[in-house]
Design a protein around this nucleic acid. Structure first.
Lengths: 205, 205
DNA sequence: CTCTTGTCTGACAAAGGTGTCAAAAATAGA
DNA sequence: TCTATTTTTGACACCTTTGTCAGACAAGAG
């Protein structure tokens, strides 16, 4: 109790890592507590000792994953820099986060079709604040830097171009990159410029 | 036996429709045979009579869904028309297909993370033939109509922009469209122009 | 050493899902 | 009508998974 024993910490984080691995690999339905326990190298009963049941565990993993993404973006959005720079920064950061968590989009998409409400709840608490970005865009439209494009499409385009490759990753690796993980990574690296470029072309006058 | 009785047809197609509904709603893992049987308004045992087991049923649904998509595209790709027109036609058709099968992308993405091999097999049999499109693009690059852009990114961009909104549909409806299905549909309609425009901007000289 | 506290486990019961079978029900053909 | 075939079903056995519980085990405090 005094030491808040190391093994505690160890087991708990081991479990969280294992759970993240298994959930992203199999989804909430496909994953079993046994598999998570094996991955964490503890008994299934221990798993239940730390996390009462599968749903709770899943929610924790899911919320934690989102937490890792959004704060960075809100920072970028609030920076006092020109929109085009902001877009470049945003895209680069987003692709970096996704590279570190390549399975996350799939997890979100799947969970969203299984139970959208959970996802909304978490996003409401932790989501990206687009409002400020939109205000800036309206201003720059007035200022004559931007053409009068539809903002919803702008937002959807950015997310589409960034996220989709990770959702289709196995497909791309099979059909475009000879199953070479490095080529995929190279592709994402190139993409940082490609996306900014494409988006800026789309909105500038 | 002679008539290949109507009820046969009925039950079988009822099952296929029900299975498609349930699989797209719950994924292969989340779906149960009972749920499919209920949806088709027959007993679970009858379900097994028509389709030996869940895997078989799923594979059929999955292959059939892909079949509905790809032939159209191969036709468009082979049409003897300029690339820009081809892109517009492709995008419009793709968004139409997706509107008719809005859950399909989610199903494919999920199944791909569960078992990529199945997906590859089906795509190999029924997939889109991009080769001819790529040849045409090289030609038009030579011809000076197109700038020297990276073709992989072009392909990924088109698919990203078309498919992603359907993957994120619940999210978009919640946060952009006040949960109004019509607004989403309106958005997709606008998108036909937006995507072609954005893509053409990206590749033309 | 003994007690307490926190960690872990094996064994169990309960629930849910799958697939099979024999037999009932429906249908077509004679 | 009677028979043969197809379709449908209820009942069953089996397996997997979940979640609980009592008790074992380790470690620090007295």
């Amino acid at each position: 109790m005094i030491v808040e024993s190391l093994k505690d910490q160890d087991s708990e984080t081991k479990i969280l890592e294992a759970a993240k691995t298994v959930f992203t690999r199999k989804g909430m339905d496909g994953a079993t507590m046994q598999e998570i326990a094996d991955e964490a190298q503890i008994s299934r009963t221990s798993l239940h000792y730390y996390f009462r049941n599968k749903e709770k565990l899943f929610e924790i993993i899911f919320a934690e994953s989102l937490d890792r993404i959004t704060p960075r973006f809100n920072k970028i959005i609030e920076m006092p820099i020109p929109l085009f720079e902001k877009i470049e920064l945003f895209v680069e950061n987003y692709l970096n986060v996704l590279t570190e968590n390549p399975m996350l989009p799939g997890l979100i998409v799947h969970e969203m079709s299984r139970d959208p409400h959970t996802v909304f709840n978490i996003i409401n608490k932790k989501g990206i604040k687009l409002d400020k970005l939109l205000v800036q865009m309206e201003l720059e439209k007035m200022g004559g830097v931007l053409r009068n494009f539809p903002i919803e499409h702008f937002v959807v385009n950015i997310f589409s171009l960034c996220v989709f490759p990770f959702l289709a990753k196995p497909l791309l690796e099979e059909y475009l990159f000879d199953n070479d993980e490095n080529k995929f990574q190279q592709f994402i690296e190139e993409r940082k410029k490609v996306i900014s470029e494409s988006i800026i072309l789309f909105i500038k006058k």
